[in-house]
């Protein structure tokens, strides 16, 4: 039981810190056949930025191959010969960046950071000879997440995953367990109406989910520094609706299966995997092929996560999440109706 309360904490910390898009101290190597004042200044400039750490100077081009194979360097900066001479006179000084393309995003981020540092160097050079001519200043504003923290997109995702996991999986397993043990029969012959039985089965998991929801929010705000920009009550209302949908799903699964193992496998294959892969929790949905995008449409967590991002991170009001609310509401009604109809009050 304790694990139900600890799991969200573990997951939020792992996802929050483990998936980061920030780049710090990436190792780079230099091959510098000209070794003059311009190349020295450029190397210093790259090295002194927080993104890069200088790992090695290569002395001959043959090392280019081997340095990547050890997997220690992710960017290699190569200068052309007589760099300074060419830079000042002929204008065809060249810098070649060879990035380790195995990790595409890191590679393109590193290349664009390095190009920006060198462009800054170029401007300084011009600046020393007076004001650079025709200078365009670009001001960049990173909306909602100025420090580009990965946690901003993982917190809503983990929230969706945990609530889905606890509500749907645990409800279905616990009802299946009663069936397996035979205690369900005892309850069914009691004068209790079936609706009461279901509701009382759900309430403990409902309570646990509320606690998990609050734990995640507290961790998000105080440990990961992800603020709740929008209204807390709107967020809570949204989460209650989602919890309701998940409980209904759990109920539906439990009416379809007879054993705990089947319930567990059913929720893992039918809920956990699709939620992890297709809800936008980790992987952007827009990159997926169409057939996966279509499947994603029927995953409740997808709508929930979208709405949480809007309310919690972007701080939008209720009008911007009407679609998500409507879809989740419709899912809740359909699921409850189907599972009540399927819930057998008769003994086999």
């Amino acid at each position: 039981m304790l694990i139900l309360l600890v799991l969200p904490i573990l997951m939020i910390l792992l996802f929050g810190f483990g998936i980061t898009t920030e780049i710090k101290n990436a190792k780079f190597a230099v091959y510098d056949p000209s070794n003059d004042m311009a190349t020295q200044k450029i190397i210093d400039k790259i090295q002194s930025s927080e993104y890069f750490t200088l790992e090695a100077y290569l002395s001959n081009p043959a090392e280019i191959e081997t340095i990547f194979q050890k997997g220690e360097v992710s960017l290699l900066v190569i200068f052309s010969e007589s760099f300074y001479e060419n830079m000042v006179h002929t204008g065809d000084a060249q810098i070649l960046f060879i990035a380790d393309g195995t990790d595409p995003n890191t590679a393109s981020t590193l290349v664009s950071y390095a190009s920006m540092l060198i462009a800054a160097f170029q401007q300084e050079q011009m600046g020393s000879a007076g004001m650079p001519p025709y200078q365009i200043h670009t001001e960049v504003k990173l909306l909602y997440n100025p420090t580009l923290k990965g946690a901003y997109s993982t917190v809503p995702g983990v929230m969706g995953l945990i609530l889905m996991l606890i509500c749907a999986m645990m409800t279905s397993v616990s009802i299946a367990k009663e069936k397996e043990l035979g205690t369900m029969e005892v309850i069914l012959v009691s004068p209790m109406p079936p609706l009461m039985i279901i509701i009382s089965k759900m309430i403990p998991y409902f309570t646990v989910s509320i606690i998990n929801y609050l734990t995640i929010l507290v961790l998000a705000v105080f440990v990961l520094d992800v603020p709740i920009v929008g209204s807390f009550w709107l967020l809570t209302g949204l989460s209650l609706l989602f919890i309701f949908v998940s409980l209904a799903l759990g109920l539906l699964i439990s009416t379809l299966v007879e054993s705990q193992i089947a319930a567990l496998l059913g929720s893992v294959m039918g809920l956990l995997l699709p939620t992890v892969l297709l809800s936008g929790l980790m992987f952007p949905i827009e990159n997926m092929p169409i057939f996966l995008q279509v499947i994603a449409e029927v995953i409740p967590a997808k709508w929930f996560i979208m709405a949480v991002k809007d309310v919690m991170i972007k701080g939008l009001g209720i009008t911007s999440i009407l679609t998500e609310l409507a879809v989740l509401g419709a899912m809740a009604i359909v699921l409850i109706a189907v599972s009540l109809k399927k819930f057998k009050t008769r003994l086999e």
Partner: peptide, 26 residues
């Protein structure tokens, strides 16, 4: 001899926001 441009990136997805704005800068 100088002028300004403004880039605003949606950084909820840090990867996309960060890379998008630096591509544009380049």
């Amino acid at each position: 001899q100088s002028a300004d441009l403004m880039i605003s990136a949606n950084a909820v997805n840090g990867n996309k926001g960060g890379l998008g704005s630096s591509y544009l800068m380049n």
